[in-house]
């Protein structure tokens, strides 16, 4: 498999843009419907966890790609 943009970075971008659309839609929906109540400390905690979880996985995948290419 050639190590070009198409095979190295496009899968990463596709995953986080495509998946990100679903993720952001979910975050907006639970705020709009008040399923998550931002007045409650516990729910604010969960809001942060959900955002951090997305970033956490994006960073893990980024590190793995860089490790494969340059380490």
């Amino acid at each position: 498999m050639p190590l070009d943009f198409f095979n190295v970075w496009l899968p990463y971008i596709y995953l986080y843009v495509g998946g990100g659309i679903f993720f952001v839609a979910g975050m907006i929906l639970i705020r709009r419907t008040k399923a998550i109540d931002m007045r409650l400390k516990r729910d604010r905690f969960w809001w942060k966890i959900m955002l951090l979880g997305f970033v956490y996985y994006a960073i893990i995948h980024l590190i793995l790609i860089i490790a494969a290419l340059y380490w």
Binding site: L10, P11, Y14, A68
Partner: peptide, 28 residues
């Protein structure tokens, strides 16, 4: 080999294992 250490398969090939297919079949 480096290609073998990447966390994602090739974007759209081979037929039996590729990133875009796995995205729709598994991630979604």
């Amino acid at each position: 080999p480096a290609s073998w250490k990447l966390p994602f398969a090739g974007f759209n090939s081979p037929a039996e294992f590729n990133s875009v297919g796995t995205f729709w079949e598994d991630a979604i």
